[in-house]
Design a protein around this nucleic acid. Structure first.
Lengths: 168, 168
DNA sequence: TAAATTTTAATGATATATCATAATGATTGC
DNA sequence: GCAATCATTATGATATATCATTAAAATTTA
């Protein structure tokens, strides 16, 4: 019975957290969305990724990332120059303004997470992580699940993002 | 450290579940989105709600619900007639086609949930529910948190949706 | 090398999210 | 009963999600 409303609780919690996180970024006077920040952060840490690579890291698809990159360019938070060795791609790099934004956002994000997780025991957090990981793998399409099982452990796959801080 | 990636896991799990759920609905040959289904279901169960009421139940805002209702009308899954006692509102009712859709979706949704939660222990589910509820309240704006604490318990507030099945 | 295939990025179409606001109808207070 | 306020819906603007497709460039294969 309560089991039935887990996805309801999930949806509600993540929506509220997103609203909360964005409101605090806005309140800090920083002009960026959480999604833009996610992409900006990945570009800052890896300057040699394709849009599909970035998409995988932030759980978006290539089309969404393409549009977010276009916005980041328009807002001057990143720059792009053509890559000599591949005419399809460009070299993205975070501008000074982009760096300033990242620096400004960082403490807000840390504070958001701390506030959101206040009162949650280590045990609960651990169970949640396990449960969420299991839900994720349960919902993978068959062939992706195979790749997941035979190649890299999830921990290894996720390592790049886990270092430093993390996804919202 | 792992604590830092909880929202990352959350985001990933919910996104994968949404993709999975929608893919299974599509595969069943049913032409509706999960979000439209959520709203349709609420209208089916309560025919006297304002858009804001519906929005609260499905964790969306009024503007999103207005557009989803417009789509449901266009697709013939609901009908609307003006309410004599209130010129701003209309009486929404689920059409036969809408009912057929609800009936068709139901088993798919149940199966989706069962598959997604396979292998999760009752303990884990319980911890997750608790954790998600806490995250939700932690992220509420101060005055909403007060109302939440002094009026209805969360369980009471959510009861309408919890009965029968539940949100995605 | 030439052709076929694959990779990459961009974009159209549609749906949803969010904020703000407009427009109109209902209610309240005086 | 009128004015102010509030409730309700609709919609504009912008951002994101998803799928499909196009276009161009790179790589592989014959």
């Amino acid at each position: 019975m309560l089991n039935e409303i887990l996805f309801y609780s999930l949806d509600r919690a993540i929506r509220q957290y997103r609203k909360f996180a964005q409101a605090n970024i806005d309140r800090a006077g920083i002009d960026i969305t959480v999604d833009q920040w996610l992409v900006l952060r990945v570009i800052d840490e890896h300057d040699d990724l394709t849009q599909a690579d970035i998409a995988e890291r932030v759980f978006k698809d290539q089309a969404s990332v393409a549009r977010i990159i276009a916005l980041l360019l328009k807002r001057g938070l990143i720059g792009a120059e053509p890559l000599p060795n591949d005419g399809r791609r460009t070299q993205l790099r975070v501008t000074v303004a982009g760096h300033d934004t990242l620096v400004a956002v960082q403490p807000v994000v840390l504070s958001n997470r701390a506030t959101a997780l206040e009162g949650l025991s280590e045990t609960t957090l651990d169970q949640m992580r396990q449960g969420l990981e299991r839900i994720y793998t349960n919902c993978l399409p068959p062939q992706a699940a195979l790749e997941n099982a035979t190649q890299l452990s999830p921990a290894e796959k996720l390592q790049p993002l886990a270092k430093g801080s993390s996804t919202q």
